[in-house]
Design a protein around this nucleic acid. Structure first.
Length: 331
DNA sequence: CGGCTTTGACCAGCGC
DNA sequence: GCGCTGGTCAAAGCCG
């Protein structure tokens, strides 16, 4: 059987060939290609015309077989046999193509769901950001008095919600409360930045020690952080941020080497955050920064987050791998 | 071996 | 001026 009879005329596919090429590369793991997929496929899911326009017809323009013998009867017999064989093969291929199309449609639906979830998540983040921006208070100018007013305000509110923050706009002071486990002994709040602990002190009004951190990502970054357990509820960590970062978030620039993983608090003007793997698992926190959701960094972050989630879903990876990388190029 | 944490010493602000 | 307190420094130790 000539090979061309099995070939799908990929030259007429509107399905992006670079995507097919990527999917066909065994050395590219799904986690690597998923960000690309998630950038490309929402557009394809929104406009599914590419799927309908996929040319699934077969190139049946077979070259006539050449026979060495000249006997007309034998040639006729072989031609009939060949036609039957071609018909059978065509039927099988059509069924295969139907199945592949069904799988493609299923994947398109899954992608639509993914896009929907993406938009929902994004909207939720925007909502949270707007909410946090409203929680701004003022405090006095003096150093110690500002701290006392800060703690009093947070103590009043701290038990209404698991996490809460107050922001001093003028002094760039932000207080964040994070609920942690009572057994969690380390005073670490994950916020997407890299911190160096430079001191620890037991304060008069709180038996729990207060830890002092400096932003260690950039030598010139003036941001400091104080972390201490709440007096009234020791399962609550109170983190106080002072100053503003003069650099992008560490995990944004070097995702593989950054130290914090979760969406977390930061001063008002802090850059948008991203995900990465932390060396020491700690607690979660919520963002109060002002990320620009349309910026490429945030888009990349969100896509990486989605890719990370999707690659953990064996059903998704299996379906994607089987339907696209394995079948379309099968001969 | 480099980076981070720990921890005692030191410094500065504030109230008396 | 003195004592108290919060904040910072820096040497030593720890860890990957």
């Amino acid at each position: 059987m000539p090979k061309s009879a099995h070939q799908i005329r990929t030259s007429s596919l509107k399905f992006p060939l670079p995507l097919l090429y990527i999917l066909s590369q065994p050395h590219l793991g799904l986690p690597k290609i998923l960000p690309f997929l998630l950038f490309k496929l929402p557009l394809m899911a929104a406009d599914s015309s590419w799927l309908d326009s996929v040319d699934t017809s077969l190139d049946l323009n077979l070259q006539p077989l050449r026979f060495s013998g000249d006997a007309p009867k034998e040639r006729n017999y072989m031609e009939v046999e060949r036609k039957v064989s071609v018909k059978e093969e065509t039927g099988a291929l059509m069924e295969e193509l139907k199945r592949v199309n069904a799988e493609n449609k299923k994947l398109t639906e899954m992608l639509s769901v993914v896009c929907e979830n993406y938009n929902t998540l994004r909207g939720h983040l925007m909502e949270q950001m707007n909410k946090s921006g409203e929680k701004e208070i003022c405090c006095s100018s003096k150093k110690r008095k500002s701290e006392s007013s800060e703690s009093s305000s947070t103590d009043e509110d701290s038990f209404k919600e698991p996490k809460q923050e107050t922001i001093n706009k003028s002094a760039k002071i932000t207080t964040v409360q994070v609920k942690i486990g009572a057994s969690d002994s380390n005073l670490v709040v994950k916020d997407g930045y890299q911190w160096r602990k430079y001191g620890q002190k037991v304060t008069r009004d709180n038996p729990c020690p207060r830890a002092y951190f400096k932003c260690s990502f950039a030598p010139t970054c003036p941001v400091k952080k104080k972390v201490q357990r709440s007096v009234e509820d020791q399962s609550v960590l109170v983190a106080t941020y002072e100053g503003e970062h003069n650099h992008p978030q560490a995990s944004q620039i070097e995702p593989t080497s950054a130290r914090s993983v979760s969406i977390a608090p930061a001063p008002l003007t802090a850059a948008p955050r991203s995900l990465s793997a932390p060396p020491k698992p700690t607690t979660e926190a919520k963002t109060i920064s002002n990320p620009r959701f349309d910026s490429p960094e945030v888009q990349k972050f969100l896509v990486e987050q989605m890719a990370s989630s999707l690659t953990k879903d064996p059903n998704f990876t299996a379906a994607l791998a089987a339907a696209i990388s394995g079948k379309i190029f099968q001969h």
